[in-house]
Amino acid sequence: MRIYILFILTILLANTAVAQQETIISKTVANEFQKKYNSNDYEGIFTMFSKEMKAFMPHDKTLDFLNTLNTQAGTIKKRTFIKYPQTNVALYKTTFERAIVALFVSVDANSKINGLMVKPYVTEKLPELKRNSSKLILPFNEEWTVFWGGDTKEQNYHVAYKSQKNAFDLIITDAAGKSHKNDGTNNEDYYAFGKELLAPANGEVVLVVDGIKDNKPGVLNPNYVPGNTVIIKTSNNEFLFFAHFKQHSIKVKQGQKVQQGDLLGLCGNSGNTSEPHLHFHIQNVEDMNIATGAKAYFEEIFVNGKVRNTYSPVKNDKVKNKYYFRIKV
């Protein structure tokens, strides 16, 4: 899975400003933006753009950006003016349903938006997490193959990205090492597609995204990189992140308590992925934009046919739980 980038930077800006009180123009425009955003009036937001902004962020691109923002962060619950980091660019600490972000809104002399940026808002020291202390099972019963996993770039391209540096991409392969039958043009050709995915540990479901379409193999969806997603928070404040579920297959709800072995959903091909697979990693906070990845160790698993205890798989390992977990829906 490619890095999880929520937001898009548009045009900006001019010189450093000195005024640190919100102007009436900024306040009016920001209020209108929030009102239209929360009512899903994305067409209305586009009409607020300057001519230059519309050229930089065409209609389709604007709608994709706002839809993605809503899918990942939800609606705006609270917005607080902070300062003008640059002339006519107002910075707001903005609390969405699922994230707290820094919202920058630039307004021209005609009260039109000529710059817009959203990025993580970080003010506090985040908790450190090197590895899991919760005992984990593999999130499946069958034998899967580690396509990406390990601590080096050769083993795992994820190491370049802070939030998912210890992530795994897992597939199912046949005796010939192939991940699909036939010519692989359909999702159903892939052995991993539709396979049941399980909760590795007890915890609470803190995020569910389930409406992203599955891609045609080879066609990526960069608008919502993780695709259909589940995040579980354990009692040890570990956030277990699952990506690329099959559309409408997720069986758990946000706020639900799950037990180790519970069915979460089915493996799919949604998000920025070229073929059906499971992306799994652990992070220290829920928001992937500010999180740091942690190393995942699993208890009593078969690794290439031999039992290993407290083991973190690496590329090309074939892994399977030592014990079969009866699926609980």
Rank of each mutant, 00 (worst) to 15 (best):
M1W: 12
M1H: 08
I8A: 08
I8P: 04
I8D: 10
L12H: 09
T16M: 04
Q20A: 02
I24R: 15
I24F: 09
F33I: 07
K36S: 02
Y37D: 06
S39D: 08
E43T: 13
A55S: 09
M57I: 06
P58E: 07
K61W: 04
L63N: 08
L66C: 12
T68R: 15
T68L: 10
N70P: 06
T71W: 08
T75L: 12
I76W: 03
R79D: 02
T80Q: 15
I82A: 11
I82T: 11
K83T: 10
K83M: 10
P85V: 00
N88V: 09
V89C: 12
K93T: 12
A99I: 12
A99Q: 10
I100P: 05
V101L: 15
A102D: 14
V105G: 01
V107S: 04
N110G: 01
S111H: 02
L116V: 04
M117L: 15
M117P: 01
K119D: 11
P120K: 08
K125T: 13
L129D: 03
K130L: 05
K130M: 02
S134T: 13
S134W: 03
K135S: 03
I137Q: 00
F140Q: 05
W144R: 13
T145F: 14
T145R: 14
V146E: 06
V146M: 11
F147V: 11
F147R: 10
W148E: 14
D151F: 00
D151V: 04
E154I: 14
H158G: 07
V159K: 00
K162Y: 02
F168M: 01
D169R: 00
I172G: 07
D174P: 02
D174V: 02
A176M: 04
N186T: 14
D189P: 06
D189N: 08
Y190D: 00
G194Y: 01
E196L: 10
L197Y: 03
L197G: 07
A199Q: 01
P200N: 00
N202Y: 00
G203P: 01
I212Q: 07
K216D: 01
K216E: 14
G218E: 08
G218M: 06
G218T: 06
L220Q: 07
P222Y: 05
N223Q: 12
N223E: 04
Y224S: 02
G227M: 08
I231Q: 03
T234W: 02
S235F: 01
N237E: 13
L240W: 10
K246E: 15
Q247D: 04
H248N: 15
H248T: 09
H248I: 07
S249W: 09
K257T: 14
Q259A: 13
G261V: 11
D262S: 12
L264D: 11
G265S: 12
G268C: 14
G268Y: 09
G271L: 07
G271D: 11
N272I: 10
E275I: 14
H277T: 13
H277L: 15
H279T: 15
H281S: 03
Q283R: 05
E286P: 00
M288R: 01
T292D: 06
A294H: 01
F298I: 05
F302H: 05
F302M: 06
N309I: 02
T310G: 01
S312A: 07
V314E: 03
V319G: 05
V319Y: 00
Y323H: 07
Y323D: 15
K328L: 10
